[in-house]
Amino acid sequence: MGAFLQYTVIGLTVGSFYALVALGYTIVYGIIRLINFAQGDLSMVGAFIGWTLLVSLGFQHLPLWLALIAAFVIPMIGTALVNLGILQFAYKPLLHKSLWAILITALGMSLFLENAALQVWGPSINAYPPSMLPSSGFSLGPVHVTFLQVALFLTSLLLMAGLYAFVHGTMIGTAMRALAVDHDAARLMGIDVDQVIRLAFVLGAMLAAASGVMIGIYYTQIQFTMGFLLGLRAFTAAVLGGIGNIPGAMVGGMLIGLLESYTAGYLSGKWETVIVFGVLIAVLVVKPTGIFGERVAERM
């Protein structure tokens, strides 16, 4: 029982990272029916911008609160700009053309970001400052929880709650949901569809960047290839929850995190990826709409 709870704590922590990346997939898919395969790599870009600030520029020596705010906010903005650039130059010319063309372009953008990061930051594993945050924690019965895990989990929840409030509580968020149903009808409401699409790319990138920085802080190691598997896992999470569905991405992310943690705990770490992508295949075969998928409106 103690081991199970311990794995649960780890699973939820990691799952919250996946959930953030999965949200990016889902927001963009909901609006333009594109699987933005660069989503995981955006997370990597965010992690590297954060590393540059903390390590190369020495932000780690600033007061902790200031260092943390900078290490989250600046990567989120930087990554949002990268994603806007991808939208503008790679996707936009193809938006009204074949869906395959844009999908393959998305795969290309994933490779582009990886190789750009390789050029900028090099092939080696870069270390986040290990002693920046306390490694201490507390015990809940048989379970040991670190303050770091709690902080990261709460940060993820906060970001997700913020997104949910934005999408459901503001007029622009409502417009985002309207775009999932009907672009032309949205235009007739006076909604600038291009602007809302840009907003979706900004939000998706910001969440990915935040998860990248959190991954850096949690595992203390990042590499230019980290976005690939992360992106596929988050994609699995989004599909599991029902792609296009925001609560679905959150739940899917947590489930994938838990699944991975239990697999690593009870079987072996080697089986993690096998199980996760087994789930992806199973969902696609048995229930392609995912857990919450029936609420997704089909536009095509």
Binding site: R177, V181, D184, A185, R187, L188, M189, G190, D192, A297
Partner: peptide, 24 residues
């Protein structure tokens, strides 16, 4: 002029098939 801007000028359009936002 973009469709969304034309609405702002004072032209409303109820499209064929209603096209309401079903999930809202």
């Amino acid at each position: 002029v973009a469709a969304h801007a034309i609405v702002g000028l004072g032209l409303g359009h109820v499209p064929e098939g209603r096209r309401i936002f079903t999930i809202l």
